[in-house]
C-alpha cells in the first residue's frame, strides 16, 4: 500500500508506538508457537515418584500394588479394547515383555468393561497382567490424557519416561534401556 504524494508523509509517532506495542508482541508469540502441538502436554510426573496403586487384575485375583512391583524396572501401559492404536502396539509390548525378563510389565484398563477386556486378553494371550481401574483413579493420578500412554518406572519407583501414543519395538527397547540405566 502506497501513500499518496499529495501531502508530505509524516510519521505519527504516538500511533506507531501504540500499534507496535500490540502488534510486535502478538506476532512474536504466534511465530514462537507455530508448529507446537497444543494437544501434547508434558507430564509433570517425569522424574518424580510414581503414584501408588493397588488394583485387581482383569478376571479377578489378588490385588497388585505398585509397592509389590518395586525393585525391578516397571512398564505401566494404559489401554482399552476400544482403542485402535492400543491394538497396534500390543504386539510390541508382548514381545518386549518376553525379551526383557528383568523388566516387569503391567497393563491398566482405561474406561473399559472387564468382560470385554478379559475376552480380548484371552484371544491375544498377553504375557503380563492387566489391572482394572474402576473409577479411573489410577489414570487420573498418572495424569493420563487418553490411551495408549505408557510410563517407564525405575526400580526405585521413580518415573523415568512417559510415552504418548502407540509404541513400536524400537522405541520400547530404547525407553526400557533408559529406564535400566537410570536405575544405576
Amino acid at each position: 500500500m502506497e501513500v499518496s504524494a499529495a501531502r508530505p508523509a509524516r510519521v505519527n509517532v504516538k500511533v506507531l508506538a501504540a500499534a507496535s506495542l500490540v502488534v510486535v508482541p502478538l506476532l512474536a508469540i504466534l511465530v514462537l508457537n507455530l508448529g507446537r502441538d497444543p494437544r501434547s502436554v508434558r507430564s509433570p510426573l517425569v522424574g518424580r515418584e510414581a503414584p501408588g496403586f493397588a488394583l485387581s487384575p482383569v478376571g479377578g485375583g489378588a490385588q497388585v500394588a505398585l509397592d509389590s512391583l518395586r525393585g525391578k524396572p516397571l512398564v505401566v501401559n494404559f489401554w482399552a479394547t476400544w482403542c485402535v492404536p492400543c491394538f497396534e502396539e500390543q504386539a510390541a509390548l508382548s514381545a518386549g515383555a518376553r525379551a526383557f525378563p528383568g523388566v516387569k510389565f503391567v497393563g491398566v484398563i482405561y474406561e473399559d468393561e472387564e468382560a470385554r477386556s478379559a475376552q480380548f486378553l484371552k484371544e491375544r494371550g498377553e504375557p503380563y497382567p492387566s489391572l482394572m481401574d474402576p473409577e479411573g483413579k489410577t489414570a487420573i493420578a498418572y495424569g493420563v490424557f487418553g490411551v495408549p500412554e505408557t510410563f517407564f518406572i525405575d526400580g526405585g519407583g521413580r518415573i523415568v519416561e512417559k510415552h504418548v501414543g502407540p509404541l513400536d519395538s524400537e522405541t520400547l527397547a530404547l525407553l526400557v534401556r533408559r529406564t535400566l540405566e537410570s536405575a544405576r
Binding site: A9, N12, A19, L26
Partner: peptide, 11 residues
C-alpha cells in the same frame, strides 16, 4: 498488521 500500522501512523 505491519502495513496497517504503517498506513495508520503515516496517514
Amino acid at each position: 498488521l505491519v502495513l496497517s500500522t504503517a498506513l495508520l501512523s503515516l496517514r
